[in-house]
């Protein structure tokens, strides 16, 4: 489903949601065009509500690491929702999916460009 186009002058809202019987903690970074290193942005977990960041110029990249926990060897699904003024962005990543390992944990790192 197509979302809204990114508006560089506006703040961005990020909310991480668990769509499976798993909990998680997450960490966020950003890198503006030309940056060679990621800069820390925030961290949280399943209890963290939607938060606002930015504004960032077009081409800025947002990276996140998800640390997922639940029952061993089970299918997990998480979604990092990126929106502006309540509208999900076109560049918002699709749901992340995977299977927890035998200890019941998983990690997923992803970067998206705000465009």
């Amino acid at each position: 489903m197509p979302g809204a186009a990114y508006t560089p002058g506006s703040k961005i809202q990020i909310h991480v949601i668990s769509q499976s019987p798993h909990t998680f903690a997450h960490k966020l970074w950003f890198a503006k065009a030309g940056d060679t290193e990621w800069r820390p942005l925030d961290e949280g977990n399943i209890e963290t509500p939607e938060r606002e960041y930015g504004p960032y110029p077009a081409g800025t990249k947002i990276a996140y690491a998800l640390l997922i926990g639940g029952n061993p060897n089970t299918d997990w699904k998480m979604q990092v929702m990126m929106s502006q003024q309540g509208a999900l962005l076109n560049c918002s990543p699709p749901p992340e999916t995977g299977i927890t390992n035998s200890a019941g944990v998983a990690r997923r790192d992803t970067a998206v460009a705000l465009n």
Partner: peptide, 20 residues
């Protein structure tokens, strides 16, 4: 224990996903 995400900051502005 996660200092940097497991994805490069440089590179084309496309989405990248990499399991750890």
């Amino acid at each position: 224990l996660i200092n940097q995400p497991g994805v490069p900051a440089l590179g084309p502005p496309t989405d990248t996903t990499r399991p750890a």
